[in-house]
Design a protein around this nucleic acid. Structure first.
Lengths: 345, 345
DNA sequence: TCGTTTTTCTAGAACGATTTAGAAGAACGA
DNA sequence: TCGTTCTTCTAAATCGTTCTAGAAAAACGA
């Protein structure tokens, strides 16, 4: 039963191992009759096809691309935005008969030598919302694995598929400024607040480059506004809820809340509902991403073509025909009922 | 730069390849001084550590477990239930320095020889909500890859971590029967309705074993009730919404709607809200899983320990110490405000 | 019919590591 | 001092393929 290899089959059929290999990989290299005889014998012997590891070693192709997520997987998937990205990536991966290798980046295993990034058999890697300068990126570079990030990195030779964060945020900022908002709270993803109380941060403490850029973009478009940065934890519905509760129950209520992701904004929406506040009238609420639930909730948001982003990353990684290395995706301000004029003081 | 292998490093340091290998994998087998000299030289030469494929081939361990999902990945991740499972699995995987290989099962690539299940370098596989008899399961069996399913399969030698679907549904059924409900609609995942109009199905047409069992459990607990099976598409919020709209806008309104997953039930909740129906008063609504959003929405549901399920699957697959092969997880009826007495006729 | 091309198959060398069995030297106890 | 046990390191086999180059046979054109 066990130990059936190409060789076993070759011997049984009476041909060379190369021929059996060809039967699987290059059907035109041998006569149909022989090929069928080989496949039949293989079936009979219980041979399940060429061993994946051996093939990977010899051919130099692992048949998998790694997907790097920050933090715990649970957070990664609680955002439909991440799911959309993955779906786009998976689409291209399937086209190239490639699997996706999920690699959570718990900070502990990076320190030790035996981490997933070091060990994984992958041909390429997609880096999803991992802060620049993360040790895992260096490991990838060391291993010589081509990588594409969803953020514009510092290195000019790193590939990326991203949006113009500053410009995207500025679109939203202009919208809010035009509506007369001058007291704005921005809800961000932050490790510090995870599991504990919501915190108010300075721009330097934010940590994620893309978040920083968005805040800069907002500020640029509304120079007269006071922007406060608040976090209720990692990027998730519950964090937005907690962050918004903190803000709404304080003395110093803003006239607008901006979630740097829709899931956080939707969490904030829940907090508003509970307090009997109508978005767009009592308080303006906006998000980023335009996930499906945003439309249902009437949330003003900045749309980014997330699935296309995933697809583009996949193409750069897998399609040899793709020459593009750095891609700027378009964004669009989607105004819905959750935004309205700032109440007169 | 390229082509730096164990051998290169060994030659540079002046030791045998075995010793370099040991420097990485068995630090106690050589003196600290030599080990550090080797590691330093490796760094200098730009050697990024043992090649993953080669190691996998020789040691027989791929360092990855496959995760099989039905249908498209996008659907898989839109349910927090699936995400919770994955989070639990990932937790154990991390503990064993193992990655997760996502393998979407598009029906097309199963037919062809070159599909992910056939090619993937994995040590084991977690089968998440894949209907029994799926060709991929046979491929796995052929390859001799240990697998654990989240459903109790037909084969007595297949490992699983599951719940008693019939009993779990019966708990909910009793609750509904006690409240006087006799006209019940069950919302199910169904490929037939995907992308098209909602459909009403017979029990035989359902397709997923676990769904069938739940419906049987409901019927068992409420023998006098009329159960109708409706689907608005695949397992997702939007499908629940569509299915519920179909039911609520028909002449033949039930007094209770049961979503076989919380996401579908929450979709139904949205449909009710739009129509000004208060759950628990005008109409009873219940779900399955008890995802976080269910609590927020006041949804009556059957809780299953999903993260534990993921963890258990991981342990069976990866932990040699684990002898368990078939595990029945507990469920619990969580009654919230969305269920109430059936209105008097 | 004879050279030339095409088809079909093979031998043997990689691919880059890990493993097993064992050698050489150091340390040890009596 | 001598036999024994550790410690530290090595040689050679092996994992199961795919690849390169080329041989043998068949088909082809003139």
């Amino acid at each position: 039963m066990a130990g059936v290899t190409l060789k076993t089959v070759a011997k049984a059929v009476g041909v060379s191992p190369s021929t059996v290999s060809n039967a699987y990989n290059k059907p035109d290299q041998l006569s149909t009759a022989l090929r069928e005889r080989i496949l039949a014998t293989a079936q009979e012997l219980g041979y399940a096809g060429p061993d994946a590891s051996a093939r990977a070693l010899r051919s130099g192709k692992a048949g998998a691309v790694g997907v790097l997520f920050t933090d715990k997987l649970a957070y990664a998937f609680s955002d439909p935005y991440a799911v959309g990205f993955l779906a786009g990536l998976a689409e291209v991966a399937e086209e190239f008969a490639t699997s996706l290798l999920l690699m959570p980046l718990s900070s502990t295993d990076i320190a030790g030598g035996s981490n997933a990034v070091q060990q994984a058999a992958i041909d390429a890697a997609a880096i999803f919302c991992v802060p620049g300068g993360h040790p895992a990126l260096e490991i990838l570079a060391n291993r010589g694995i081509p990588a594409v990030s969803t953020d514009r990195g510092d290195h000019p030779d790193l590939s990326w598929v991203a949006i113009d964060e500053v410009e995207a945020a500025a679109q939203l900022g202009e919208h809010l400024a035009r509506l007369g908002h001058r007291e704005v709270v921005v809800l961000v993803d932050n490790a510090q607040a995870a599991g504990g109380r919501p915190v108010e941060l300075t721009l330097d403490e934010v940590g994620y480059t893309d978040c920083e850029l968005r805040i800069q973009g907002l500020q640029k478009a509304m120079p007269d506004a006071r922007l406060r940065i608040v976090s209720g934890g990692h990027n998730a519905f519950a964090s937005g809820l907690k962050g918004a509760e903190f803000v709404l129950d304080s003395q110093d209520r803003p006239t607008a809340i901006v979630g740097l992701s829709d899931v956080q904004a939707l969490g904030a929406l829940e907090a508003m509902k509970v307090r009997g506040l109508t978005p767009g009238r009592d308080l303006t609420l906006a998000g980023f991403d335009d996930i499906p639930a945003a439309a249902a909730a009437g949330l003003t948001t900045v749309r980014q073509p997330i699935k296309d982003k995933g697809r583009a990353v996949g193409r750069i990684l897998l399609d040899p025909a793709s020459t593009e290395r750095q891609l700027l995706m378009p964004t669009q301000l989607i105004v819905r009922s959750s935004s309205g004029p700032a109440p007169k003081p």
